[in-house]
Design a protein around this nucleic acid. Structure first.
Lengths: 186, 186
DNA sequence: ACCTGAACACCGTTCAAGT
DNA sequence: ACCTGAACACCGTTCAAGT
């Protein structure tokens, strides 16, 4: 006799994100997610193939949020202004979602790799801004330079990599300014 | 009656690095390392407090190698030349040690955090080059800009983040050239 | 002083049995 | 059609017992 589902993929992914937010990727266990949504661990396998797929779904959820934050930040149509806004939105997102951010551009288990279309959508605002700033011929390497710098900066900051003192906010603004100057077509 | 040690901390760390090289951090299990050095898992706890400490020792081992590679790369005393050499050495190291590299500037469990002195030693060549390039007043933010860009670029490359086509080598050289120009004092 | 098997509390995952 | 307990093969870690 069919019984109605007592949980849903949406609830499961949301519980997965809470687990990651609180305790990082290792905090995302099937047992904990199951408890959180009110079933036993084996039941999760009716909604998700395995833990790797759940991790991927959580990463994609995070990526969607990051994409939306970037999209909302780059609206001035003034490329240098948008560049700064994008970088700051990027950093703010990472600071507000440190564990979730740590999942992006990271470990390679392949099984965790998010859908390519999502990656492209999240990078669209940066590519658009880079095109306006550096010109269409240099758009791709320019976007990669900015994105590499921003992801690297934020990751080092989150990992506690800036140990030598100095003003980290200032270093971030310095980077924005220098990159904007370096990538602008003259 | 005392019995001589059948293994050593050096052998254990080396086995840990092999496990990481082959299968990433999740491949570093106490049982596997124990088998590799010829003892049973509980014996490892005579040499190491727990897995977290072993992971930290492996990370520090990787960091020492990276520091040596960077030190060997920056020898020309021509800042712009050294900048390129450092960036390329960084990238080469990551390509040759992808799983080991993934451990650096990464996950935050705090227990895994390498010794600060090692971090400083590994970043010394970059700081020296940045000082020569951007001047002492701007050395720290300049070093951070370069390091952030290099770590971010390499990480995205390893994670398969550059999906939009284009020439990745060219984007890397473009980044070196643009950063060298942007950070040079005029 | 070091190594071991046994044990404990956890994992992810499968599967037959329940409704 | 979904959920469950039991089971399996793994983890990390502790500890008393062996040499």
């Amino acid at each position: 006799m069919p019984t109605p589902a007592r949980t849903s993929i949406e609830a499961i992914v949301a519980a997965g994100r809470r687990a990651v937010a609180n305790d990082g990727l290792e905090g995302l266990t099937m047992q904990r997610v199951a408890r959180d949504v009110g079933v036993r661990a084996p039941s999760l396998y009716k909604h998700v193939r395995n833990r790797a797929e759940l991790v991927r779904l959580v990463i994609e959820d995070v990526l969607r949020d990051l994409g939306a934050a970037l999209e909302a930040a780059a609206t001035s149509r003034q490329p240098r202004k948008d560049l700064g806004a994008l970088a700051r939105a990027f950093r703010r997102f990472a600071q507000q979602n440190p564990n979730a951010y740590g999942l992006l551009f990271s470990r390679v288990p392949q099984e965790f790799a998010p859908d390519r279309r999502l990656l492209e959508e999240a990078s669209a605002p940066m590519l658009r801004t880079a095109t306006a700033l550096a010109g269409p011929d240099r758009a791709l390497p320019a976007a990669r330079t900015i994105t590499a710098w921003a992801t690297g900066f934020v990751r080092m900051e989150l990992a506690g990599g800036f140990q030598l003192g100095g003003d980290v906010d200032e270093a971030f603004e310095y980077g924005i300014d220098r990159l904007a100057a370096a990538l602008s077509q003259h």
